[in-house]
Amino acid sequence: MEKFTRLTSIVAPLDRANVDTDQIIPKQFLKRIERTGFGEFAFFDWRYLEDGVPNPDFILNEDRYRNANILVGGRNFGSGSSREHAPWALMEMGYKSIIATSFADIFRNNCMQNGLLPVILSESEVDTIMARALRGSGYKVTVDLETQTVTDDQGLNASFEVDPFRKNSLLEGLDDVGITMSLGEVIDSFEEKRTARW
């Protein structure tokens, strides 16, 4: 997994509630057997017009957000389908962190597994970031996982919660499966007891 430590970047705003994973990566692109190749299809129905030309009305197509590595979204971001293709697609689009007031559980887990940091802030903090990102161009924030803060140069200083285990995995870029496999004997003995009972 990619490490996540500290990131300063332009913020791209997507001011919509309940952005579901069907929007993030539509079903016709789920047929690939690789983890890559999804980025160009992210937000497909919103992002492109009928003839495949980028939709000028879709905010993430605007030049001023092109190099953003941080996305700020509405509440319940990533709802719906469990498809991990959604964080894969967002990461290929360039995003490394998403800020919102809430995330759907499975999506949040999937992000954590890939080094895409989901950050939950209060409604007023998200509103502030959204408004500043929408206002001009070049608005940046710094997401710092070590200190669990989001800051900007206009006085924003927000803190967020993160599970200590997940935090460590993200900071170190650790492989979850590897950590669990080191507990092989514990699993063996649990299995022995359980198999005897069932």
Binding site: R35, S82, R83, E84, I106, N109, N110, Q113, N114, F165, D176, V177, T180, M181, I187, E191
Partner: peptide, 18 residues
């Protein structure tokens, strides 16, 4: 409950989930 593909890998390899 539903899980993502990385967790599918975790369950395939360890039969457990965190």
């Amino acid at each position: 409950f539903g899980i993502g593909t990385s967790e599918v890998e975790h369950v395939l390899a360890t039969q457990t989930l965190r």
